[in-house]
Design a protein around this nucleic acid. Sequence first.
DNA 1: TCAGCTCCTGAAGGTGCGCTGAACTGCAGC
DNA 2: GCTGCAGTTCAGCGCACCTTCAGGAGCTGA
Lengths: 225, 225
Amino acid sequence: MRVLVVEDEKPLAEGLKKGLDAEGFATDLAHDGTDGLWMARENPYDALVLDIMLPGVNGYQVCSTLRGEGNWTPILMLTAKNGELDEAEALDTGADDYLTKPFSYVVLVARLRALIRRGAGERPSVLDAGDLSFDPAARVARRGGSEIALTSREMSLLEFLMHRKGEVVSKREILDHVWDYDFDGDPNIVEVYVRHLRNKLDRPFGRAAIETLRGAGYRLAADGG
Amino acid sequence: MRVLVVEDEKPLAEGLKKGLDAEGFATDLAHDGTDGLWMARENPYDALVLDIMLPGVNGYQVCSTLRGEGNWTPILMLTAKNGELDEAEALDTGADDYLTKPFSYVVLVARLRALIRRGAGERPSVLDAGDLSFDPAARVARRGGSEIALTSREMSLLEFLMHRKGEVVSKREILDHVWDYDFDGDPNIVEVYVRHLRNKLDRPFGRAAIETLRGAGYRLAADGG
DNA sequence: TCAGCTCCTGAAGGTGCGCTGAACTGCAGC
DNA sequence: GCTGCAGTTCAGCGCACCTTCAGGAGCTGA
């Protein structure tokens, strides 16, 4: 789990890094808001620990800037005093949790883990056609309840067909979208892969999702065949 | 609410018990570290009040031992003098809060209630996938009943995979999250560690939790394989 | 009915990805 | 020092996947 700690008090920052590393986190440090912002943009962190009082850009600003850019990495804010205002403001600007200094190290780790567990889970959509479904992100195809193992090329083809379910797609289009533009091999490859998909998606279920339109191309039945 | 007070000064201990009982707590007493540890293990307390200066096993040791065993009962430490070292050390060993002697009885009760109220939410949770489980805080992995010894790198990898169980994670993602971002060594390291995990988690049990998706990455079976 | 075409099918290379065992490095404990 | 362990690097190997190919089946129009 990769974590960025943005904290200007160096001893505290170093202590946190040491502790978090020992817990198995991969911890990076930034000592001011500008650096913090930059690093948070450039790297895929699982969580941010963000002090409010920072030289340059302060914690609130870092937080709201990131949120404004569509970055939803979980953020744990460190508020200096036990002021209600601080905490409320932290949550307002888009932080996910806050901790009042001085804080217990155990509590920090626990809250951090909780944040990461909840995580930022924006799920890409699942494509479907009748009882046939395909989740491109998870790389899982299903017919009814059962999961179907597909190779990368088979998935690319299925994804393309599902995006255009109900439409006729020519072999030329398939070649252009599923294979590289500069593919100049045997176009028969499309037929071969259609066959592979049929063997996996249709035959075991006695269905016919992929229809051949002689001279025109193929069509994936919108209802899954 | 059941509370254990571990305190060797008998008058203070008795006074606390009387007061806490009056507040509606069910209070047990232990007068040294050994007894305290034993009682904390055997009974499901909602909180512990733990003096640092104890005959035999001291408060720090009691605290870190319990944490090491995966016991996350909230602990309120009593530090003798107002030394920063004491406080920091208390928190380091896993205490949730501390109080400097002499303390106000009202404050003690208030903090104790606060701890108990927050209590559950702060305990690190255990990740699981079927009969496979991993407690990131205790750093213990188990398959079924048996505990499995893992190195810290193996744990980081397992933790990352378990957080995203059922999803496909690419080697690049694994490198970015489990290794430091400036790691520019051989990406083959991921394969090597996947192999280590398989040797420890799968092979002895004839299972297959970690699936290879050629060209895409790896996936930890949500049901443990 | 036949030719010409498209598409299907099974099998057979190549190739590169991932697996594997071993060696090397650095660090901690004795 | 030596020993053992964790982390990392490396090179060879096998196989899964991709692609090609040739023959066959089936459709279409004359």
